[in-house]
Structures are given as structure tokens and as C-alpha cells.
Simulated assay, not measured.
Amino acid sequence: MWALALCAVLSALVTWQVVAGGPLRDADERLGRAAFGRGPTGLTEFLADLGSMAVAMPVLAVAAVYAAWRGRRARAVAVALALVAVPVLVMPLKLWIDRPGPLTAESGYYPSGHTATAMVAYCGAALLLSPRTGRGTGRPWVMPVAVVLSAATGIGLVLRGYHWPLDVLGSWLLGGMLLALLAAALRWIDNRGAAGAETGTR
């Protein structure tokens, strides 16, 4: 669980800097102002929209239905619960930290909900489309595509001026923690299923 611990430590550091207004937050705001408005508007808006529930949830839903159809209902439920955990964790942080947005007087922008949604939905779908533990490599391209989509969402949100860079980084770290826990849960489900199948053949 080293990945979970690393993400937790870095998340605490980033959150502390945002709350305390430390040097990392100052650098973040300078970087954000320099990045806003760069890139083709249509493309950056499209990338930012990848993190909306209207886009990310159907992708995960298709993967979950496929997994359930393949007899992996417990895996599908675990991934769905991970996505449900995103707003449960993000919304209290937004209310507590109350960070103003880059181009608005409104607050509640840290961490980025769209970024966390994209990361958990796309990487969760990739985990569902991957074979069970010990069953081969399956589709090696699926997770890299999910990671690219997650990264592209955060980049689009910053370039469009919807979020500061640390808002996105904080969500990547939060998403990393959720995915580490999810991966552990899926391994447990797979091992339990394999043990049950082995017992059934005796």
C-alpha cells in the first residue's frame, strides 16, 4: 500500500499549502495565470468536459455492465462505490477549504471534482476491463488510455481557467488514494473468487 501512503502524504502537503497560503500556493497561482487561455479553445473545453458526470459516468457504466455480464458483479460494485466516494470526499473538502476560483469570485474550487471524477471513472473502467489477478495481461492498452484521459482532463481544466493547477494535483492525489484502495479491494475479490473456485473443484 505504498502508493496509498505516498498519495496521502503528498495530498496532506498540498492541502496544507493551499489552506495556509504558503509558497507552493503562490507559485501555483502564478503558473495558473500564465496557463489560462492557452491552447485551442474547442480542444481544451472538450478535455475539461471529460471530467463531467455526463461523460465519465456512461463510460464507467458500460464497463460495469460488461463486467457484470462476464460474471464479475462484485468487481463492478466495488468500482461503482469508488465513484460514489468521489463527491462524498470532495464536497466536504471544497466547503472546508473554500478556495476562490481562478476567474471568479466564487469559492469551493479545491479539490477539482471533475478531475477526481475522470480519474476514478476512467481508471476504474480500465480495472474492470482488465483480467482477474493471475489471468494474464489481457488489454495492456486500457490503463494507459485511462491515465491519458485523466491527465488530459486536468490539463484542460487549467488551460480553460476553471481550476488552479493545485486544485487538479490535489484531485489526482485523492484519486490515487481511491484507486489504491480499489485495486486492493479488487485483488481481495479476485483471490476470494479463485479460492472459492478451487474449493468447488475438490
Results as ranks from 00 to 15, higher is better:
residue 170 G to K: 06
residue 50 L to V: 08
residue 61 A to G: 08
residue 166 L to D: 09
residue 74 A to C: 02
residue 187 R to H: 01
residue 86 V to G: 14
residue 91 M to H: 13
residue 130 S to Q: 03
residue 106 E to H: 10
residue 72 R to Q: 04
residue 54 A to M: 04
residue 44 T to P: 09
residue 178 L to C: 11
residue 97 I to V: 15
residue 61 A to H: 03
residue 147 V to K: 14
residue 174 L to D: 02
residue 109 Y to Q: 14
residue 100 P to I: 11
residue 77 V to K: 03
residue 176 G to N: 09
residue 91 M to Q: 14
residue 146 A to S: 13
residue 53 M to Y: 14
residue 139 R to P: 00
residue 118 A to F: 07
residue 67 A to Q: 04
residue 110 Y to E: 11
residue 158 V to G: 10
residue 148 V to I: 15
residue 46 F to L: 14
residue 141 W to E: 11
residue 135 R to Y: 03
residue 82 A to L: 01
residue 69 W to V: 13
residue 93 L to R: 02
residue 151 A to G: 15
residue 159 L to G: 06
residue 132 R to K: 06
residue 51 G to L: 07
residue 160 R to P: 04
residue 49 D to C: 03
residue 141 W to V: 05
residue 53 M to N: 15
residue 168 V to I: 12
residue 188 W to R: 12
residue 72 R to P: 00
residue 46 F to N: 11
residue 47 L to K: 04
residue 125 A to D: 12
residue 67 A to I: 05
residue 161 G to A: 00
residue 175 G to W: 07
residue 177 M to S: 10
residue 110 Y to Q: 12
residue 104 T to L: 14
residue 121 A to C: 15
residue 86 V to H: 13
residue 57 M to Q: 06
residue 148 V to K: 13
residue 182 L to T: 10
residue 46 F to D: 13
residue 122 Y to V: 08
residue 103 L to T: 15
residue 123 C to K: 01
residue 168 V to G: 05
residue 136 G to I: 00
residue 141 W to L: 11
residue 79 V to L: 04
residue 150 S to D: 09
residue 79 V to A: 10
residue 157 L to Y: 08
residue 131 P to Q: 02
residue 53 M to H: 14
residue 174 L to A: 12
residue 132 R to N: 01
residue 73 R to F: 03
residue 94 K to R: 10
residue 153 T to W: 02
residue 124 G to M: 09
residue 183 A to D: 11
residue 158 V to A: 08
residue 46 F to Y: 14
residue 188 W to Q: 05
residue 83 L to C: 12
residue 90 V to Q: 06
residue 165 P to G: 05
residue 125 A to N: 12
residue 73 R to M: 04
residue 85 A to F: 09
residue 130 S to L: 01
residue 120 V to H: 13
residue 50 L to G: 04
residue 133 T to N: 04
residue 63 A to V: 06
residue 176 G to D: 07
residue 98 D to L: 03
residue 126 A to F: 03
residue 119 M to Q: 14
residue 165 P to E: 04
residue 46 F to A: 15
residue 114 H to F: 08
residue 92 P to C: 05
residue 130 S to E: 01
residue 87 P to N: 08
residue 143 M to F: 15
residue 88 V to K: 02
residue 188 W to E: 08
residue 159 L to V: 03
residue 103 L to F: 12
residue 148 V to F: 15
residue 183 A to S: 14
residue 78 A to Q: 01
residue 83 L to P: 07
residue 118 A to S: 12
residue 67 A to M: 07
residue 71 G to T: 04
residue 48 A to R: 02
residue 164 W to Q: 08
